[in-house]
Simulated assay, not measured.
Amino acid sequence: MARMHTRRRGSSGSDRPAADEPPEWSDVDASEIESRVVELAEQGHDPSQIGMKLRDEGVKGTPIPNVKLATDKKVGEILEENDASPEVPEDLRNLMERAIRLREHMQDNQQDAQNKRALQNTEAKVRRLVNYYRGDELPMDFRYTYRNAQELLE
């Protein structure tokens, strides 16, 4: 599969081991995992950060290698059930933050052609994601602009 904005191919990555059930050494109750997920979300962590914290720190010292195997729910599903899901999806938030940083850089460095192209590519990705999320997780009349992104992320 080629990359979106270049003619190069993507780099390969590692795959998660195929497993149907959690390992025996990780015997934490599903309700404890769910409460820890909600607790971490209330502290302001994103779903991907929650997964890493559970992998590294765990619940009561026992690491959780995979939340979905341990609870039969994804981190996002747990957050939705407990009304702790973020108002903006994580992938869209990260792209908007990057676009804001690039635009602020471009205001100071107007001759930086590489970052101008990077800003165009990033904003194109943001617009595609806004179209994808419009109606479900974003209002139907939401349109991406620099000011809207700034207001949304404050």
Rank of each mutant, 00 (worst) to 15 (best):
A84H: 08
D27F: 11
E21Y: 14
R8W: 14
V59F: 12
S31G: 11
R147Q: 09
L129H: 08
A18Y: 14
Q150N: 02
F142A: 03
A18L: 15
E80K: 14
L79R: 03
Q111W: 06
S26L: 08
Q43K: 14
R101W: 01
A70N: 07
P65W: 03
D46F: 14
L79G: 12
R16A: 12
R127T: 05
L79C: 10
V37Y: 06
R117V: 09
S11Y: 08
R8D: 15
L129G: 01
Y133C: 04
M1N: 13
V28F: 10
T62W: 02
T71I: 05
N115F: 06
K53S: 06
K73Y: 09
A18R: 15
G13K: 13
Y133Q: 04
G58C: 07
L40P: 04
E34P: 02
L102T: 01
K74Y: 05
L40W: 00
D72G: 02
D72L: 00
L153H: 03
M4Q: 15
V28N: 08
S14R: 13
E39D: 12
A149T: 01
M96Y: 09
L129Q: 08
Q120F: 11
P22R: 13
L54V: 06
Y133E: 07
A113T: 07
E80V: 09
V126W: 05
E151D: 11
A30V: 10
I33C: 06
K116I: 01
Q120C: 02
R127C: 03
H105I: 02
A70P: 00
R93W: 05
H5D: 14
A84S: 15
V59C: 09
Q110A: 02
M96L: 07
E42I: 01
D29A: 14
Q110E: 13
K74A: 11
Q43Y: 08
A30C: 10
T62S: 08
G76Y: 10
I64R: 02
E21V: 15
